[in-house]
Design a protein around this nucleic acid. Structure first.
Lengths: 357, 357
DNA sequence: TTGTACGCGTTATCAT
DNA sequence: ATGATAACGCGTACAA
């Protein structure tokens, strides 16, 4: 017969066992506090008692007294987030959760349903009820959304697509190094006819990928043909498939290489190519962006990697820093920008003569 | 100048505002309790005050007093869990987290590092320190591991590959309906030469996939050729790639269809096929298992889907039920078995004459 | 070093 | 029939 719910030892138990007061137990276990110096012998008694009883402080009681819940809020970007349909927000959320766990923090996520009432202060109420210590916003929908959290007294960290008109610490990813590297790679392989499939949205982050692409081509004196620039509305498979099909339908003079600025776009590209029996990299070199599952496709894709794990790590670092700092001490709206980089795999090689001729 | 950390209203504030005692506030807001009946008018006063002050009870204080942390522990199976390398444990963990969130529960996960000391009671201590209310174990490594939690007084739910010698509520997935359906599908398409790539492990769950495969073939009077049964040690891409390469290397008389009992195995298969320029489904029909990212491959794969979301949902239901029930009331070691099913996509079709001839 | 009070909600007991 | 008072859960911080 096993004892159910064996009572966990409390500081009171330890205190009795060591014949000291609870205050002393607390002081000893937290490494000395303020003016409190304890005689080495009683210190040992306390330590011994604690280990003998297997004592660990109750996190709830501690949180209640410290007025810190150790729960942080996370607001994913609005798109529905299933792992393989929306890889970036999904993986980012994962890394946020992991980084939080490492710091003994819990994460509550505004669910998709809750996010529907995103314009109101539904979100703020959600977070407020859960007593979160701070929030992390992935690509917030509006400046107002961010501001409401700040007005509620919560430290806010913005990710990926920040509202720059709101003053808060931010972590972003710089597309430039990776995309420039990708183009250099293709050009060194001998490609001159390079197409682009990307997002046509107005946000600077999406614009940057296109701008970086075209400026690199210009700098190299390569043609930027508008019929080889396919702008889509979503980073999803269908969009990639459609865009690639359109490229395949071009009368002649096809590109020999292609940059698709999202793994999902690349999957759609691969599906279109597979259906048309166009082989990668023999008939077309392909580079994806994100590098989330680029390695898990056939063939494994060369890809521009986004450092999402580090984005999460830095976000948590910024948030915990904000929690430590006195409320209104130097708003310290640090902006951390992390570089992309190219990972070369099996989807790129020199254009074949046949294609060039 | 915004006010930082605006004090959240407490039950004390509401009490003052409504000119009643804190006890009454609690009683009214939680829907009547025990012997306490409140006059309609004061009841209104309390309700009004609560909404006016935007009051919501502090979850920490409540948890402290109710002796329930609202945190549950999750122990993933031992393999390193990166999303695309170990899709099943990963997706399962995701659904667990979601299902928990819906119930206002937090999840702490034993990290890979912690799991290293899995034989000792490292895990139990980890969970104990966090005051989890119960734990969910995905495919525990040993009966002892499960038992230690039970001995510690924690409700335990086992998932996927349970230790049946330990008495605890369990959620499993039944491979049979899906695999039988898959074979019926292939046979109806005209396939008679069907190969299998699967896990060679001893656990009943892995055995079942193989057994179901062979028994179906037997029942249909189809050949079970041992050189078409490739057993591997891991559900990963490399294993699938190697196994498929071996199949391709067979002198002649190749199978026209293949069941790979894991999406990752199927990815490896696709990579091997792509390299050999063998097309799916023209030259080979392929069915994967898991259906996690089968739809996101080129071509989209027909797959046997595991209902992982429902596994998680049921696990949480069992766990919360265990939390409600009195500690040792009918151990109620319910076993929930959920069926797999076939999802038909583009990777299966009738064998071509050429292959049959 | 110790006593005491606090953080906050809930519940058992007591008073009209 | 209605309501208030007090104590509890647990750790921490400040005054004594």
């Amino acid at each position: 017969m096993t004892l159910h719910k064996p009572r966990r030892a409390t500081s009171q138990d330890v205190a009795r066992h060591a014949r000291v007061s609870r205050a002393l137990v607390s002081g000893v276990l937290n490494g000395t506090m303020s003016t409190m110096r304890v005689s080495p012998t009683t210190r040992q008694r306390v330590l011994l008692a604690a280990t003998e009883l297997g004592y660990s402080p109750n996190p709830l009681a501690r949180a209640l007294q410290q007025q810190r819940s150790n729960v942080i809020g996370y607001v994913p970007r609005s798109s529905r987030r299933t792992p393989y349909e929306h890889p970036v927000p999904f993986i980012l959320g994962l890394h946020i959760a992991r980084a939080a766990m490492r710091r003994q923090l819990h994460v509550v996520e505004a669910s998709a349903e809750t996010a529907e009432a995103r314009k109101s202060d539904e979100l703020v109420r959600f977070m407020r009820e859960r007593r979160v210590d701070g929030v992390i916003l992935d690509s917030p929908e509006s400046a107002a959304e961010v501001q409401r959290f700040i007005d509620d007294g919560l430290p806010v960290i913005q990710l990926i697509r920040p509202r720059s008109d709101v003053d808060s610490p931010t972590v972003v990813v710089d597309a430039d190094p990776g995309i420039s590297e990708a183009l250099r790679h293709l050009i060194e392989l001998g490609h001159r006819n390079i197409a682009f499939i990307g997002h046509g949205g107005a946000h600077p982050v999406d614009r940057a990928r296109l701008d970086c692409f075209t400026s690199n081509l210009h700098a190299r004196g390569l043609p930027v043909r508008t019929d080889w620039l396919r702008l889509v509305a979503d980073y999803d498979i269908a969009a990639g498939n459609t865009a690639m099909s359109a490229l395949l339908a071009l009368p002649e003079d096809r590109p020999t290489a292609l940059l698709a600025t999202g793994d999902n776009l690349a999957v759609g590209v691969l599906q279109a190519l597979y259906a048309a029996d166009v082989r990668v990299p023999r008939d077309l070199s392909l580079i994806s962006y994100d590098d989330i599952f680029a390695a898990h496709l056939a063939p494994p894709l060369t890809s521009v990697a986004q450092p999402l794990e580090e984005v999460a790590e830095r976000a948590l670092a910024l948030l915990t820093a904000a929690l430590e700092s006195t409320p209104d001490a130097g708003a310290g709206s640090a902006i951390v920008s992390l570089p992309t980089r190219l990972i070369v795999r099996d989807s790129t090689r020199s254009p074949s003569r046949r294609q060039e001729g």
